[in-house]
Design a protein around this nucleic acid. Structure first.
Lengths: 147, 147
DNA sequence: TATTGTTATACTCTATAACTATA
DNA sequence: TATAGTTATAGAGTATAACAATA
C-alpha cells in the first residue's frame, strides 16, 4: 500500500502533478535525445510544425496555439529565422504583424524531425498502449483547457 | 479536423509530449498559486511529504522516489533545514548517509500545505472527472517507468 | 487606448562534473 | 573502487515588464 521501491508516497500517491512532472521530463528528454543535434529543440519543433501547417501564421497566433508567451516565441522565431528555417514578412493591412513561412531549408529539416517525431510517438504509444492514446490526450486536454 | 482556435496542429494533434508540457505547466503554476508564499515550492512539497511519510529516509532514497538528481535535492534539503522544517542526522553504521526527519515546525507547515494539496487535487479531479483519475495516473506511470 | 512584436532581465527547475568523506 | 553527499556551474524553458510601432 502506497509503496514505491519501499518508500511510502503518502498523499503523493494520487497526486497527479507529481506524476505529470516526471512524465513530462522523461518525454521531453527522450525526444531531445532522439532529435540530437539537428539544430532544433523540442520547443522549436512545435513552432516549426505550427508554421509548416499554417503558412502566414502570426506570432500571437503561434503563442496561443503553443501556449507560450510572446517574449520567448519572438526569440525562438528569430533564431529560426537566423538559421534560415523560416522567414517573416510584414502583413499587408496590419503592419504591426509578421506572417511566418517555412523556407525550403526549413522543409528539409521539417521532414527529418517529423520522422524523428514519429519514432518518439511510437515509443510513447508502446508504453501506454496504442488503444489508450486517445483517452490519454483527451485527459491531458481537460487539464489544459481554460475555463 | 486538426483545428485548435482555427490553427491546424498537424502532427502535433496526437503528440503526447505537446499536451504533457502544457498540462504539467498548468498544474504546476496552479499549485504554486495555491501554495502562495507559504515558504514552500511544489518541488519542496514533494520532499517534505517524502520525509514526513518516511522518517529517517536518506537522500539517495529521496532522489529515487522523487525522480530528481542528488545535486538539486541537496540544495533543497539544506534550504528546508535552514528553515527548520527538517533535520538531518548522520546514520549510525554508515557515516556517509544522512537521515532526514521532519521537525515540529515542519509538521505545522505540512498540515497547512497538505490541505492546500487537497484543494489542488480536487480541482484536477473536477477537470478530468474523479472516475478517470486512477486511469490517468496509471497512464502517467507507464510513461515514467524505467524499462 | 489596445495590440503586435522586441528587448532586457530574471526566475524556476533541473543536471553535469569534480570534489570530500566514508565504505 | 564504489557510494553518500556537497558544491560550482550551467543549461533549458519560461515569464514579467517596459518599450516602439502601428492600429
Amino acid at each position: 500500500m502506497a509503496k514505491n521501491n519501499d518508500v511510502a508516497l503518502g498523499p503523493l500517491e494520487d497526486f497527479i502533478g507529481f506524476y505529470l512532472r516526471r512524465a513530462y521530463e522523461k518525454a521531453f528528454s527522450d525526444f531531445s535525445e532522439i532529435l540530437g543535434n539537428d539544430s532544433l529543440r523540442p520547443g522549436n519543433f512545435t513552432l516549426l510544425v505550427l508554421i509548416h501547417e499554417n503558412p502566414g501564421i502570426t506570432q500571437v497566433e503561434i503563442c496561443r496555439a503553443a501556449g507560450r508567451d510572446k517574449s520567448g516565441v519572438t526569440l525562438s522565431l528569430r533564431q529560426m529565422e537566423d538559421d534560415d528555417l523560416i522567414e517573416r514578412i510584414r502583413v499587408e493591412g496590419d503592419r504591426r504583424s509578421y506572417a511566418s513561412y517555412i523556407t525550403l531549408k526549413g522543409r528539409e529539416l521539417y521532414a527529418r524531425v517529423l520522422e524523428k517525431g514519429e519514432i518518439h510517438k511510437k515509443q510513447l504509444d508502446d508504453r501506454i498502449g496504442a488503444d489508450k492514446k486517445a483517452e490519454m490526450i483527451d485527459l491531458l486536454k481537460k487539464l489544459i483547457d481554460e475555463n
